[in-house]
Design a protein around this nucleic acid. Structure first.
Lengths: 339, 339
DNA sequence: CCGGGGGATGTTAACGTTAACATCCCCTCG
DNA sequence: CGAGGGGATGTTAACGTTAACATCCCCCGG
């Protein structure tokens, strides 16, 4: 039992073993030119004295940290929770620690998160940009630190990105409803400031076009990405008598919110309204009454994003921005009814 | 636009403005004894040259990092996702960055996570100990770095903890079933190596006792905490003809797994079996067919845990270990049927 | 027998910041 | 008018590690 009073440093080990600080450092890092018995003495002293390597000092001297920052909106959303989990695992496998920062989809918090990551000298950043993040990304790009956009892209910077095929997903969701006879489909679009919201809408429109259904802009409604405080919006929508028989929500979270709201008004899913979400966050939670959704391959996206970032940090690979788009798939559930 | 070629340091600012490094440092930190025009010149140079404060060097010199590590099993579980989100927000409000590390409920990964956190000189640690983590906690305690257990406690160390009242939760869940006429209640206990599993079982037994129902150990089954690979267990349980009409699962995640398994065997919830989970992860996802569960107050737990840790890091407060237990509540759902 | 090569270790400086201490100057008060 | 005080700034060393370079010694080959 050590009385954690003062930290044990390389110098302490050096004094205890009679070797120089440098020799101790090299021994602990596993360099070759060390006599076996020297190594043994040093390792023994390390264990006995409870030496702990100081990554701060090491990183300062070496100039890199083997750490990446992961900047996401909100890990309380299982979609991001799973993404974080997968990213962390992949990063660890590639020798990097992953540092989570959350933005609550707020531009100022995102700016602070980037700032903090850069201050900490992370070697690279994975970021799912929040709405209005153009300036932040612009700043980030000017810093010269490698970064990869995950889940959303941005017109503000010509940067690497790894996203799912949102246009396809939007098409698949809408198509699933059209095939069951729906022709007036509400779209809870989320925030059109983010690319995935715009592209899912594009897929929605393409599906309508292909089916010869006229696009009605009154059926497309914007809302907050995190789904907070959307009740007024839902009430407004119901009051307008738009005649829709189905809804496609930007995310499962928003779909649940809407579902709960409808239930409170006596409107049942799928009896009175069919519903499709996005992200398939119930992949693990899947239950017999599951929400029909669009599956995104979070594991593949995470691996691609981490590996791409690792290549950038190492200066390997094609210098042109990589654009990785991973197709989505329909995740059948029980919330779509034939009309 | 700067060509991020080389980092701009205090020395560069000093040379550019003609002041000493120390003056620049003090100016940027907002110390008082700085002439207004000096401050202005320095701030201008900072903006112009794109100076970025190096937290590594600063922390090394100052001896603290204003960072805490949060060590959890698995953020892909919304329960932990929400906890992380709440902890991060509270930590930020108290002036600390929160660093997430995940263990996958594995003792070796937990050890690595603690090691990594300590290497990074975090000022404190919040940890939800995995099964078999006794030795890890013991090591951690010997290091003298402040830490607080969150969500689970441990017999291995007499440390601060903030947990929910698992015994009460277990009682509430079981009681809810008993009140609806159930007398043979399966308990999917999870891993009895963790305190919450043991205490929820204690609550289960107390509820049975109070109702005069005999305890049948065959109805209590252990399983993996993360719920992975429990299918064989579920099959085994069904094959035993135990005559239970209800089940109480260690967590919502395990409840969902079991539910899905049952559905695959043609057994419907709640028609054929009533089901109660724990954690109420659907608080946000709540739907008309929601799982009956036990609500844990994750926001309060997070605030208590962070605030307690902050007190420890500052050396304030009662030196005796704090034991914070926050009561749970029944979260009514649709998965309990009267028999 | 001597030069050279290479393995083992030591010496020194540097990473970028901060804190303690020193200095300088000007203004005020006795 | 001189001592003293305090504001503004500079000098120096240190945080703990690592890398470049230097040194020493032993052994081998010519």
């Amino acid at each position: 039992m050590h009385n954690g009073r003062r930290k044990v440093t390389l110098r302490d080990l050096a004094e205890a073993t009679g070797f120089s600080v440098n020799t101790v450092s090299r021994a602990l890092r596993g360099e070759k030119r060390i006599a076996p018995e020297t190594l043994q003495k040093i390792l023994e002293a390390q264990a006995r004295m409870g030496y702990i390597h100081n990554t701060l000092a090491s990183s300062l001297r070496r100039g890199y940290t083997n750490t990446i920052a992961v900047i996401l909106g909100d890990v309380s959303n299982p979609h991001f929770g799973v993404m974080m989990s997968e990213i962390e695992a992949r990063a660890r496998a590639r020798g990097y620690a992953a540092f989570l920062q959350t933005t609550s989809e707020d531009e100022a918090l995102e700016r602070a998160a980037i700032q903090s990551a850069v201050n900490k000298s992370v070697d690279g950043i994975l970021i799912c940009p929040c709405p209005q993040s153009g300036q932040n990304l612009h700043t980030l790009a000017s810093l010269g630190i490698p970064f990869v956009l995950v889940g959303r892209r941005s017109a503000a910077v010509d940067a690497d990105y790894v996203i799912c095929n949102d246009e396809l997903g939007g098409w698949q969701a809408t198509r699933a409803l059209i095939e069951r006879g729906h022709r007036r489909i509400l779209m809870l679009q989320g925030d059109p400031e983010i690319s995935s919201a715009r592209e899912r809408l594009a897929g929605y429109r393409r599906a309508l076009d292909e089916a010869g259904i006229e696009y009605d802009p009154r059926l497309v409604r914007e809302g907050s990405v995190m789904g907070k405080d959307n009740e007024a919006l839902y009430a407004q929508i119901l009051s307008e008598d738009l005649g829709f028989t189905a809804a496609f929500a930007f995310s499962d979270l928003i779909a649940w919110d809407f579902w709960r709201f409808l239930h409170g008004r006596g409107i049942e899913v799928p009896r009175d309204l069919s519903l499709v979400g996005f992200d398939n966050i119930q992949s693990r939670l899947s239950i017999p009454f599951g929400l029909t959704s669009i599956r995104t391959y979070k594991g593949r996206m995470s691996v691609e994003a981490v590996d791409l970032l690792v290549r950038r940090m190492r200066g390997e690979g094609d210098p042109a921005p990589a654009r990785v788009v991973i197709d989505t798939a329909l995740a059948p559930g029980e919330t779509v009814r034939t009309v």
